[in-house]
Simulated assay, not measured.
Amino acid sequence: MFPVDHAITRITQTRQAGIDKGERTEMGSKWTVHYGLYRVHAYYSTAHGLQTGITSQDLDTLWQALTNIFDHDRSATRGEMAIQGLYIFSHDNAFGCARATTLFDRIKVTPLI
């Protein structure tokens, strides 16, 4: 997809010079991308978590926050964003059972359009 430029009109002046002149509107532009897919990798180190006191409840709260990250943060500049998937790899020891790159390579992403 390609970014699209839109002209926008703001009703409220934001610059003192415009207010002093009696201007009522202000022109601007906004760029949008109709569809974009971001892939993000995040890492949690159990070994470091044990040193800092992170609990499984803390991790559950983090996963829930990541799943709902855009539901309560709407913005005209971002449009409508949504998480399409959250993949969590768990290991039976603090240092892991497989390399992160090996695990991430197992996830295949296909755009919806």
Rank of each mutant, 00 (worst) to 15 (best):
93 N>W: 05
84 Q>P: 01
55 T>K: 03
22 G>S: 02
64 Q>W: 04
89 F>H: 06
7 A>H: 09
24 R>E: 05
11 I>M: 10
44 Y>R: 05
50 L>R: 13
40 V>S: 03
42 A>E: 08
41 H>P: 01
104 F>K: 07
11 I>N: 07
39 R>E: 10
79 G>N: 08
35 Y>E: 07
9 T>E: 05
57 Q>E: 02
34 H>F: 11
62 L>S: 01
92 D>C: 07
92 D>R: 11
27 M>S: 13
71 D>K: 08
26 E>F: 02
79 G>Y: 08
4 V>Y: 04
37 L>W: 12
64 Q>I: 00
55 T>R: 04
73 D>C: 04
12 T>C: 02
68 N>A: 10
89 F>W: 13
108 K>Q: 13
55 T>S: 14
72 H>N: 14
110 T>R: 08
29 S>T: 13
63 W>M: 08
110 T>M: 08
17 A>G: 00
91 H>I: 00
14 T>H: 06
56 S>Q: 12
76 A>E: 12
65 A>T: 10
73 D>L: 09
28 G>W: 02
25 T>Q: 08
16 Q>I: 10
31 W>M: 15
2 F>N: 14
111 P>A: 05
8 I>S: 03
111 P>Y: 14
55 T>C: 03
110 T>V: 11
106 R>P: 02
107 I>W: 05
104 F>G: 00
98 A>N: 03
42 A>G: 15
78 R>P: 00
28 G>T: 02
78 R>K: 09
3 P>W: 07
85 G>N: 07
3 P>R: 01
108 K>A: 07
80 E>D: 09
45 S>G: 09
94 A>F: 04
2 F>C: 05
105 D>G: 15
56 S>F: 00
65 A>V: 10
